[in-house]
Write a protein that binds this DNA or RNA. Structure first.
Length: 268
DNA sequence: AGGTCGACCTGGCAGC
DNA sequence: TGCTGCCAGGTCGACC
């Protein structure tokens, strides 16, 4: 999916674009993305106004005037686009009373949509760790968490229970900025390095949000446009290309079934 | 109990 | 051209 910076960009676009609009009609083209019966979702959305758009980790919650939350997890290939052209990957569309239309597109159909009264009804929220920009995500928390695990640090960064919102792209980028090898085990991370992880997690994510995210293949923002942070990526998807720091080739390895990119010389 | 591995899907691309 | 295999930003349940 889009990771935190991409989802945050979509959130900001929607917050500007659909606030206070009233849902007139719901069109469901593919119910595989729904975690509730189509009829129930339609009924719960129809007639509601969108009162706020909030983000938690990589999930969006659209606050409805009924008091319920429309939870959208876009996963790898989901897109929420206002007034875009309908395509063969459009799985759902909302007509607003003012004539605007919100599309949910999803090539791989991994996305999950549901309307809930309580955030705890969403499995993802039940296990979710602190937001990277929250006070709860601090040097002491990071150090204490890492101390009790032997998993490679890359896998820990990807774990939503440790911190919300970091995915495969930013995990590699953050570790490069910290000069820490993705293979280093959690309990081998020093206190000073926990502080570095904290600092660079915030810095990398903030910069990516400022550039409206990274578009590798499928990600588009709420207006259907690509993000610009790809140009700033130092290691992700750069196997064989020179390290920006020392010039030696960037390596690609596989950890927990996912690609990791890093510089063997700079990251120890 | 901590940690890893498929499954869930579609489509683009490289190689033959 | 057309086939095969690999790869892709996430999450979750099954299994070791």
């Amino acid at each position: 999916m889009p990771e935190l910076p991409e989802v945050e960009t979509i959130r900001r676009d929607l917050q500007r674009g659909i606030l206070n609009k009233i849902i007139k009609r719901v069109h469901i083209f593919d119910s595989r993305i729904l975690r509730q019966p189509a009829k129930e979702i339609s009924q719960k959305l129809s007639g509601c106004a969108i009162e706020a758009v909030v983000r938690r980790g990589k999930a969006l919650a659209l606050e409805l005037s009924s008091g319920e939350h429309w939870i959208v997890q876009v996963m790898m290939t989901g897109q929420l686009i206002l007034n875009g052209p309908r395509g063969r990957h459009t799985r759902l569309a909302l007509d607003f009373t003012d004539g605007d239309c919100l599309l949910y597109n999803d090539q791989r159909v991994f996305g999950q949509l549901r309307v809930v009264a309580d955030f705890q009804d969403v499995p993802y929220f039940r296990i979710l760790g602190p937001e990277p920009f929250d006070d709860a995500f601090n040097d002491a928390y990071i150090a204490a968490y890492l101390k009790k695990t032997k998993r490679p640090i890359k896998n820990v960064l990807l774990d939503p229970g440790f911190v919300a919102g970091i995915g495969n792209i930013y995990a590699s980028e953050i570790l490069f900025q910290c000069r820490i090898s993705p293979k280093r085990r959690g309990h081998r991370i020093k206190l000073s390095e926990a502080a570095l992880l904290h600092q660079h997690t915030n810095a990398v994510l903030k910069q990516a949000i400022a550039m409206r995210g990274s578009s590798m293949r499928n990600y588009l923002d709420g207006a259907g446009k690509k993000g610009k942070f790809n140009q700033r990526l130092k290691v992700y998807a750069r196997a064989g290309k020179p390290c920006a720091h020392c010039g030696s080739p960037i390596e690609r390895i596989v950890q927990a079934g996912r690609s990791t990119f890093y510089c063997m010389k700079c990251q120890i």
